[in-house]
């Protein structure tokens, strides 16, 4: 039951659905799923691409020693220095530093 005045009618919505669905391109669910599966089960897993699941747990220790203190300095350029923002908001990355007393 529609009581409020709308910018469009039921007929318009139905037409929109018809128009939308006449041009919709949905690959058959099974073939799309199979293609994605092949990609995920194949090469893509190694990279940080479509199938990287994020962090996992570990039951191992690490031999990589991370110095335990809390201070660090910005010494390396990330790619964010190349992202343009209007005005004087660009380039402050080079001044980044953090020194928290441990």
């Amino acid at each position: 039951m529609i009581t409020t005045r709308r910018a469009f009618s039921a007929a318009m919505l139905a037409t929109a659905v018809t128009v939308a669905l006449s041009t919709v391109s949905v690959t058959s669910a099974t073939s799309a799923a199979a293609a994605e599966k092949e990609k995920c089960f194949g090469v893509a897993m190694a990279g940080k691409n479509d199938c990287a699941a994020g962090a996992g747990t570990t039951c191992a220790g690490t031999s990589k020693v991370d110095y335990q203190g809390n201070s660090w300095k910005y010494v390396e350029k990330g790619t964010c220095t190349s992202m343009m923002l209007p005005g004087d908001r660009m380039g402050s990355m080079t001044a980044l530093k953090r020194d928290i007393p441990a």
Binding site: T58, T62, S63
Partner: peptide, 10 residues
């Protein structure tokens, strides 16, 4: 200075 082994699975 005694040996300390780490179960690193690496």
């Amino acid at each position: 200075g005694r040996p300390l082994l780490i179960d690193a699975h690496d």
